[in-house]
């Protein structure tokens, strides 16, 4: 059961992947699909997000919003 959740602004994501090694639970990965700019955007892979916000803190474009259940 996920304790956290992230919302990704797909159109703003540039697919740099800097957030992927920052995630402790391997929740996120680049999609095979692309956004309107042609970038493979970030997507959530599984249900083990803990809402630590590491991905959002290293994101150069600030595309990730993080929520954590209290």
């Amino acid at each position: 059961m996920a304790k956290g959740a992230i919302v990704i602004e797909i159109e703003r994501c540039k697919g740099c992947g800097v957030c992927i090694p920052a995630c402790p639970n391997k929740v996120i990965a680049l999609s095979k699909k692309v956004n309107s700019k042609g970038y493979n955007y970030l997507e959530v892979q599984n249900d083990s997000c803990i809402g630590c916000a590491n991905c959002a803190i290293v994101c150069p474009d600030g595309v990730i919003t993080v929520y954590r259940a209290k």
């Binding site: 474009d61 600030g62 993080v66």
Partner: peptide, 30 residues
Amino acid sequence: MSKDIIKPENLVYRRTPVLTKNTMHYCPGC
């Protein structure tokens, strides 16, 4: 499940309003 968590009271991190809504021109990962 994640829909139950995505509520304003559970917000941990969001893009600061001191940045404009423009997408930055920097290269990916800069």
